[in-house]
């Protein structure tokens, strides 16, 4: 059974991780890749600064959605992967795989939003590639972007040790993008407020890294959701994290829709939210700083690092019980009842 690649291998959860660890790292291992961060960070010989390189492919449906499209996503997604490792995004490449028959107006719309998003994120597209594949050999359009940025050493958090008592912060209400896309696919009519949270995080994240030298971990919580990021942290640093259900911000529409669909927003994808670990003495100041930006004004402390040498993640529920919080397993599908 396990000799074929299944869709769940691309879900961003455990199956993806297993594929990376068992099949890719086995052959491609090197100190930079082995860190498994959102971007690879490397030194330039003879220079005082480091650089970060990341790549991401965007294969989404629908390609147009509320508050974005595949073009905007392909810029912000890659920019976000750079900034969370402390890199100031500079340049992007743009690879387009277009399915025969795509409406030229759709392509124009996508390129236009790539241009707008690149301006907003202050990056330039400096190289690109276009391929057209036969009808039914693709799904309208696939985009790959690779991004490169500079990591100034004061923004490089990688060597700061995470300790017991450190604080876990999420930058705002979670689960919007994943739940919204699922509602779209179900063709459910939704209100104005129901939309993707797609956003450029670089300004706020880099600003935070400039001001707070005790930020010890940053990751944008995309596929697999906040639960998967928390598990990645606890595994990577071999420590226990406890988060509190009541403290995790979730928008009312996300809460309602996720109940109907039977999907926990903590596993649902975000495209404009990050998780940060910071030492306790800087946590409140960081929250004050984040509250100045519309994008992160609802940031909250959701939990703590409670132990070391035990890689576990726990959730304290709103009725006061405590249980393990696993990373995403398999695909997210609405329940059948």
């Amino acid at each position: 059974m396990s000799n074929l690649i299944l869709l769940s291998h691309g879900s961003g959860g455990d199956s993806t991780r297993q594929l990376i660890e068992k099949e890719f790292l086995k052959f491609l291992s090197n100190p930079i890749l082995n860190e498994l961060l959102d971007s690879g960070v490397f030194e330039i010989p003879g220079s005082s600064f480091k650089m970060a390189l990341t790549t991401d492919s965007y294969v989404i449906s629908p390609i147009f959605f509320k508050n974005g499209d595949i073009g905007k996503l392909s810029v912000f997604g890659t920019v976000n992967d750079l900034c969370v490792v402390g890199a100031k995004p500079l340049f992007l490449s743009l690879g387009l795989i277009i399915e025969e028959g795509l409406d030229i107006n759709d392509l124009r719309k996508i390129i236009n939003s790539i241009s707008e998003a690149a301006n907003e994120a202050k990056v330039k597209i400096i190289t690109g590639d276009t391929k057209v594949v036969e009808k039914n050999k693709g799904d309208k359009i696939f985009i790959n972007t690779t991004g490169i940025g500079i990591v100034e050493s004061h923004r490089d958090w990688r060597d700061r040790p995470v300790q017991k008592g450190d604080v876990v912060i999420v930058s705002g209400p979670i689960g919007d993008h994943g739940i919204y896309i699922m509602l779209e696919r179900l063709s459910i009519q939704t209100d104005e407020e129901v939309k993707s949270d797609l956003a450029n995080l670089s300004e706020v994240v880099l600003g935070a890294l400039d001001r707070f030298d005790q930020i010890k971990f940053v990751r944008d919580a995309t596929r697999g959701g906040v639960a998967t990021v928390l598990n990645e942290i606890s595994q990577k640093y071999n420590l226990t994290i406890e988060v509190y259900e009541e403290e995790i911000p979730v928008r009312e529409w996300v809460k309602n829709a996720s109940e109907v669909l039977g999907i926990d927003p903590i596993y649902s994808a975000n495209e404009g939210k990050f998780v940060m670990i910071i030492s306790q003495n800087q946590a409140q100041d960081l929250l004050n700083y984040l509250s100045l930006y519309p994008l992160t004004k609802d940031a909250k402390i959701i939990g703590y690092v409670t132990d070391i040498n035990k890689p576990k993640t726990y959730l304290v529920t709103r009725i006061g019980t405590k249980r393990i919080l696993e990373s995403l397993k398999g695909d997210i599908l609405p329940r059948i009842c």
Partner: peptide
């Protein structure tokens, strides 16, 4: 099954 899921998810058994 949804009850099963929620009973586990909220650790109700432990209460």
């Amino acid at each position: 099954g949804t009850h099963t899921h929620e009973i586990s998810r909220y650790g109700i058994r432990s209460l």
